[in-house]
Write a protein that binds this DNA or RNA. Structure first.
Lengths: 290, 290
DNA sequence: CGTTGAACTTCGTAAATTCCTGACATAAAT
DNA sequence: ATTTATGTCAGGAATTTACGAAGTTCAACG
């Protein structure tokens, strides 16, 4: 049976890069740390640290152990926080991951129902879909908002729930939008430089289908992972871009951006992904209800 | 500081559903377990278990703790295995995740270089891309083979590396394939029922582009998450389907399946994803070299 | 309605582990 | 040679863990 106390000391040593610093940080004697780490090595049957110069270095086995320990103690920390939060009457802290493929404006609109929660402490993290999924599994996020469902594997510990399905509109810089282009929409897209989300996003797949169905031959001048970045490049005149209408009503009043048109039949779905196990965060439940 | 031994007992109790059973499983006295779990509750400041009938049940905080503990001890187990494996001269165990969007035949071909490793113990797990990604982060997999790259976030702990880019061929049941359809390929696809991978796979996106570029209007009769399942339905006569040529040479000799044609310009990329940290599994390195 | 028995709890004490003090050896960089 | 860091050995104090014995709770059964 692995001794987690020993592991903790080992982890601290490898993080601080030496027994002396680790002992100082832990407020303990150096010999103790040394002895305990040695115990760990004995119980695992392999050397984890080797001398290097006047310090130490990780062996291969040590590096493997380090990686795992990192995750273990990260989860330990998350556990304590989670327990503290659960029973604290209403929960005030909510960690949300916002996938890059999601319109930031839509995200804000979706989080609306809980923004007036008293004493709310909202922690927003951004990143790629996969990265956020990992954090969800490690329980350092309560909820992920994304444009793509996680496959609803029954024996898995994640649930995806479609929050909304919002129509998609096209916006562009004033330089490119005039009465002609608006009237001729969507045919006018063929004459305009187009910005699109990256190929692996669900919205992109829907749009490709739509182009095909409409028989549109378009000129793609840019592909973006992050929709906010895309809108910045669009406002600077690079091209026109699609975005979920949800929360984008005031995008037309953004300096430099005008509404080009709304493509019927193309929707951006927004999903909430959260852990199946355990209690659900009350704020997550509130979001799901509307 | 969280006491992992207390946590371990708590976890065992919640898994076994009672102190008595947990004590039996641990070979210890019931009182000990009870006292230790009580210590944990005291240090966390919240009750984790509550009486229910003549047994016990998890409180909300307890459920949160349970979830985290599950991951923690899973990683602890993985840590021990990893350390055992590292120093055992050459590593013999390799845990590979095979993404559903990947042709099983191609996967076998890619793993070829290491299949002759003496004393190899290959652990193959299948699943959705996201699920496997999570297992990679939890270090219960060494490597994931997939048709889609994980975004190469520089400050992230995962690396994707494109292993091969293999052309895609179409196969179908004898009932649908004859000299006419082969000669008229790819135009003949318009007259054939088509099976395709699910919309979120990278191959699907490439194919949609290809259909569009060729001006093909096709009839999709099935979409599959799993390419192996797709080939089974195809062999039974449901339709024709695309598959990476890599490792598929002998697919033509599979009872009931014939080669229809090869679409130039459409490639299935296959990526290897693995953890950036620590030493890389020697077998993973061997795979990357070729 | 009281008894029964399974399951959890409390208490006191024995055993094991953890941790410190202090002294000393080794190895490498300046 | 000096400084700085790791590695080792001992003895003893402090803490944690484990268990026996006795007590409490609660559903089930006659």
């Amino acid at each position: 049976m692995l001794n987690y106390r020993h592991l903790y000391y080992f982890w601290m040593v490898s993080k601080e890069g030496g027994f002396a610093r680790a002992a100082a940080r832990l407020g303990m004697a150096v010999q103790t740390i040394s002895a305990q780490v040695r115990e760990l090595e004995k119980s695992l049957g392999h050397q984890l640290l080797k001398p290097l110069g006047r310090g130490i270095a990780l062996t291969e086995a040590g590096q493997a152990a380090q990686n795992h320990a990192e995750g273990i103690f990260q989860m330990g920390k998350a556990l304590v926080e989670a327990v503290q939060d659960t029973a604290k009457g209403r929960m005030t802290r909510l960690s949300v991951g916002l996938s890059d493929d999601l319109s930031k404006l839509a995200a804000h609109a979706l989080l609306g129902p809980i923004l007036d929660t008293p004493d709310l402490r909202l922690v927003c993290r951004e990143g790629g879909f996969e990265r956020l999924q990992v954090d969800l599994a490690l329980h350092s996020l309560d909820l992920v908002l994304t444009g793509r469902p996680s496959p609803d594997n029954p024996n898995l510990y994640l649930i995806s729930h479609r929050l909304v399905s919002s129509p998609v509109a096209w916006y562009g810089p004033a330089r490119l939008i005039d009465k002609n282009t608006v009237d001729a929409f969507p045919r006018s897209l063929e004459r305009l430089p187009i910005l699109l989300p990256m190929g692996h996003s669900a919205l992109r797949v829907s749009l490709d289908h739509w182009f095909h169905a409409q028989g549109l031959r378009i000129k793609v001048v840019g592909e973006f992972e992050d929709s906010a970045l895309m809108s910045v490049f669009a406002a600077r005149g690079l091209g026109v871009f699609p975005v979920s209408r949800l929360g984008a009503d005031d995008l037309g009043s953004t300096p430099g951006l005008l509404l080009l048109g709304c493509c019927e039949g193309v929707n951006e779905d927004i999903y909430a992904i959260f852990s199946r196990h355990g209690r659900h965060h009350p704020l997550v439940q509130k979001l799901l209800r509307g």
